[in-house]
């Protein structure tokens, strides 16, 4: 009888521990739960300012007349960088920029 009670207690303890672990996971993940009313875009582009930094650097590097270089598309490139595709009067270019705002490369396309 004592053995049965002991087994039941052990099982309950294990279940409780298991639940607490699950609850712990939930608590942890709840920190990442968006707040009500949070919004996002359905697609992932480079942050606006990084796109413009690429455009400015490209205008400077490629000596674009008038300096008007327009980002036309962008996408993640690796874990912490973005590829920004650019157009300007007379050409196109591809710029890679990291999240800190450092331009890694500019290639005429």
């Amino acid at each position: 009888m004592n053995m049965i009670v002991s087994r039941k207690f052990t099982a309950l303890l294990a279940a409780g521990l298991g639940l607490s672990v699950v609850a712990g996971c939930n608590t942890s993940s709840s920190n990442q739960t968006p707040s009500a009313g949070a919004v996002r875009s359905s697609g992932e582009t480079a942050p606006t300012d990084l796109q413009l930094l690429c455009a400015a650097k490209t205008a400077e590097e490629l000596k674009v007349t008038g300096g008007n270089v327009l980002p036309v598309s962008s996408m993640p490139s690796g874990e912490s960088a973005y590829q920004v595709n650019l157009t300007f009067d007379g050409g196109q270019a591809v710029c890679i920029i990291d999240e800190t705002g450092t331009v890694q490369s500019i290639s005429p396309a």
């Binding site: 949070a38 875009s41 582009t45 606006t48 300012d49 990084l50 413009l52 930094l53 705002g101």
Partner: peptide
Amino acid sequence: SPEEFRRQVVPFRTAEKPGTIIIDGDRHF
């Protein structure tokens, strides 16, 4: 509207001069 769309000051790294308007149509900003 949702808070993201309300007027707010944000960090913005750019070489464009103050007074320039930049519209990100994809993100609605």
